[in-house]
Amino acid sequence: MAVHALPRDLAETTAAYDRRRRNELLFFGAVVLALAALPLAVRDVYAQNVIVLTLMYAALSQSWNILGGYCGQISLGHALYFGIGAYTTSLLYTKAGILPWFGMLAGGLLAAALALALGYQLFRLAGHYFSIATIVIAEAGLLLVHNWDWAGAATGIQWPYVPDSWATFQFGRDKLPYIYFALGLFVVTWLVTFLIEGSRWGYWWRAVKDNADAAQSLGVMIFKSKMAAAAVSAFFTAVGGSFYAAFVSYIDPESVMAFQFSLLMALPAVLGGIGTLWGPALGAAILIPMTEVTRSYLGGSGRGIDLIVYGALIMVVALARPQGLVSLFTRRPAPKV
């Protein structure tokens, strides 16, 4: 996809726009380098585990953001695609010996195809009707897998215990391979978002948000671009699911397809700034370590204190920074959603 040099808004000259885009890329490069160096400094396994999850949710939320943030289609059913990725990879690997890398691709394509099939119907629904529809489809998917004996049903799928290897993407103690894969996934989803922002699609989607008349004239093209966005979003979500399956080496329906995953994919984007380039990453960087640390260090009491702290923090952030935390760092007002 080529980067079309379309001005972000009319007040910005093409030259200024190009400069800003270049600076964003440079900044991104610096962040990625810093992230790549981070696990070399942080050797603690628990902390590395938190880094893996943070990068994974950053990537997942970035994928979610393409559809939920930029297109304004609030999906609360992305756990379906996550589960498709996890299950396709695990089934192909354990039943047919197909390496997870191919399973990842297969899962991604399957999820993208399903997103296209569903999108055709679902994009006609507005607002909450769309969101509830995504919830019920994902829940129906969860129930079907739960009752699918060949796929292990409730028992789930245990990956065989094998020596460390990149081929099978199994590493017993070493977290670095997982950190770098999750980082890679985040880089790809960020770049895709970056390209979309600068493309015709990004331009149309902004136009539709600012101007209802534009929606009329662009109707068919908008519909097609949203379908494509749904497919891209589903593809990367499924790749994330495949990664998760390899990372945990055990999946069952509840642990990869439950509703909470759908929320966990949306939450970082919302917290960080929905429909923004940096929102999902920023949101994940705060939310995931917070979730893990409150559970690990407060959850042991069994008195629900971790829930109180976690819930209160979400509430406070949502209320204190409605436009997302990313707004702390930019002067420009966040785009309206």
Binding site: L267, G311, V337
Partner: peptide, 19 residues
């Protein structure tokens, strides 16, 4: 909230539920 009204409400009430 001046931006993101729908999502802010969802997550404010979601946070409330967890609390």
């Amino acid at each position: 909230a001046k931006a993101n009204l729908g999502m802010v409400q969802i997550f404010a009430t979601f946070g409330l539920a967890v609390v």
